[in-house]
Design a protein around this nucleic acid. Structure first.
Lengths: 327, 327
DNA sequence: ATTAACCTTGGTATCGATACCAAATCAAGA
DNA sequence: TCTTGATTTGGTATCGATACCAAGGTTAAT
């Protein structure tokens, strides 16, 4: 920066101002500085800037996985919105292991981010203390906790689960099973299941949950394929499967076709998430569509303007129950 | 850090050493320092450390999209391997727009990363100059360029495309079309297509490519569904579709079922990528499986140990042609 | 012509760590 | 006991920007 300043015959501080608040510098000097920057191929050093201004222009994200297509849309929205505003994203994934969250957070905080995004909503006390001691916006996404740490952006997984169960009940189904969502660390799936349980209770129907908490189980498509041996064999009366995710639902449908079970005639199937495959040119799956990208964009806005977001505290982006051919 | 040093009655530099090279500090002082760190809830400031040591312990990644499941595995492998070594990942996505690459790179370099990962392999001269002027490892992934900028980790999309076309030819198909892969910025898809063209030329068969470069087209599943109207109608003799990705192949298969076209009887279909759905509990799709996570892990290792990686220059992780029920 | 208010500009201290060098301590062998 | 080399420790300068404050220049009103 000194070199640029010398070449343009100005003080270093003027160079700094050209980069951050160009409107406060006279046009003549601004042009000289910009030419010098170009000529020297100067790339500012943000680590130094972060140190002196106490603003890193970086946000941290701790996600349970990047390996989920709807979830990836959130990341996409988050990162593009932030980058448009001149910020970058430090990404860390915990692979659904809550024990890693504190470590990951500590590592992130060492980079002094200007804010944090978390996909989990249940946190260890260590995590809570760390977040309380730093004074930066914290956005929890994809699930609306009753007591957000700071700001929350998402939708009610409980209500969505409830609605979907009501939809199946409305179709005249009496033996509806809920498939999946019992992995530890997956509080979103669990909330959906709770919504399902509540809806069935309201309709005075018995809930059927598979696999049970204790059983280890495959996940995603494999889980859907395993349903026929593991769940329908035990309870052949089941005529509707409400799956915790579209992936599971797709596994169910593939296996149903293989076995000649008619969908939705013999078995109704619903998904959750709205991943590309669910749509009509794919499986034509009844599902809950989540505006994944919008969650990312809204969280980015919350990070960039925490005061406005804190006024709301909870930003509900909603969801859409899309009825298609499988129910 | 000063506070910690005072509380433990040592110099600040000793605190620094406890954090970075604990084996060089006597056990007594090390314990005192660690207790003081705990007691004060001290979280080191890496921005300051980066400034003075010229090492940020952060790597930058510029990806074309996070929104692709096999690709997400790469990110996953990359980020977990780096985090295990005490590094973090700064993620930026260009959404397949090559024009954004230079901006994104500039923004990343301002954060002074210790290395860069790029998913694209064709770069503007601005990008090349920037990368040349910084002296950090640069890893290009998912495609092996003939002239890597520095280090490359991936596999030959050309060879994989060639192999898959050979496979279809070996099944006795004579009218094989290649579907997709003409989006600008997607050099990987293009290389697969080139492999297909070469294989057909070697077998003296005419290549059929759809959609053509000029036409705009939907992508992913939608594209697969559109094949029947857009491609097979024009050329009903086609009896095998080699799709640029599993997503496209899945779209084809769904639409084929809807139209009562038998797969592989009437139409063979192959995919590319090995996304979860392709496997036998899903679509039972013949595809090229890419070790996505391994690419991530190998790139992380290359970043962490560039000297060793530079000795090889190009790290080929290979691929597997998995023959299943659709061909 | 003078004064006040505003805008533009630059000097210097500072952010919180690490690098580099020098001093102090320790262990082992003469 | 003294010397030597290895190990442990601390002081001080430094990384490259920004914050803060003060000074000079300009404009408009009196």
């Amino acid at each position: 920066m000194k070199d640029v300043a010398d070449l343009a015959s100005v003080g270093t501080i003027t160079v700094s101002r050209v980069l951050r608040t160009p409107e406060k510098v006279s046009e003549a000097k601004r042009n000289r500085v910009q030419k010098a920057i170009e000529q020297l191929g100067y790339v500012p050093d943000n680590t130094a800037g972060a140190l002196s201004s106490n603003k890193s222009r970086v946000f941290g994200a701790i996600v349970s996985t990047v390996n989920d297509s709807v979830f990836a849309q959130t990341l996409d929205g988050l990162s593009s919105t932030l980058r448009a505003a001149g910020y970058e994203l430090l990404l860390t994934s915990t692979n659904y292991d809550p024990a890693l969250e504190e470590d990951a957070l500590r590592a992130l905080l060492a980079r002094r981010p200007d804010g944090i995004v978390l996909t989990s909503t249940s946190h260890s006390s260590g995590v809570k203390n760390l977040l309380k001691s730093v004074n930066i916006p914290v956005v929890e996404i994809w699930q609306l906790p009753s007591q957000p740490l700071d700001i929350a952006v998402g939708f009610s997984n409980f209500q969505a689960g409830y609605d979907m169960a009501r939809h199946l009940i409305g179709k005249g189904k009496k033996n509806i099973a809920f498939i999946g969502g019992n992995e530890r660390g997956n509080d979103r799936g669990r909330r959906r299941r709770d919504g399902y349980i509540a809806a069935l209770a309201d309709a005075k129907l018995p809930p059927i949950i598979w696999p049970s908490e204790e059983q280890g189980s495959p996940s995603g498509i494999e889980l859907g394929a395993a349903v026929f041996e593991g769940c329908l064999k035990v309870n052949p009366a089941i005529n509707a499967l409400m799956c915790v995710s579209d992936q599971v639902a797709v596994g169910v449908i593939c296996e149903a076709k293989r076995r000649g079970v008619e969908v939705p005639g013999g078995l109704s199937v619903s998904g959750f998430g709205g991943f590309e495959l669910a749509m009509s040119s794919g499986f034509d799956l009844t599902t809950i569509e989540i505006p994944g990208r919008e969650i990312g964009v809204a969280s980015a806005k919350a990070l960039l303007n925490p005061e406005a977001a804190r006024a709301k505290k909870v930003i509900d982006v909603g969801y859409t129950l899309v009825e298609r051919g499988t129910t």
